[in-house]
């Protein structure tokens, strides 16, 4: 597996995914949505596993992609 974070489009059916992401938050309070987002981050991070990529992902999310 590559140690490089993928920052080019990589999701098949991007619109479907985005709609699903919004749908899972539907009807939730701000607090419950925040909790869901936090759980989602942890589930996805575990799927990635690779520490180097996770570090790059954190930097990318912080809009500091030069790291």
């Amino acid at each position: 597996m590559s140690d490089q974070l993928t920052l080019s489009p990589n999701i098949d059916g991007a619109d479907d995914f985005y709609a699903e992401l919004l749908a899972v938050h539907e009807g939730l309070s701000k607090e419950d949505s925040d909790a869901l987002n936090a759980r989602l981050i942890l589930v996805l991070a575990n799927q990635i596993g690779n520490r180097a990529i996770l570090t790059q992902a954190l930097a990318a999310a912080a809009l500091k992609p030069e790291v």
Binding site: A35, A38, R39, L42
Partner: peptide
């Protein structure tokens, strides 16, 4: 706290 509770719930 949100992240901590997420870890515990999961």
């Amino acid at each position: 706290r949100t992240l901590r509770d997420a870890v515990l719930d999961l």
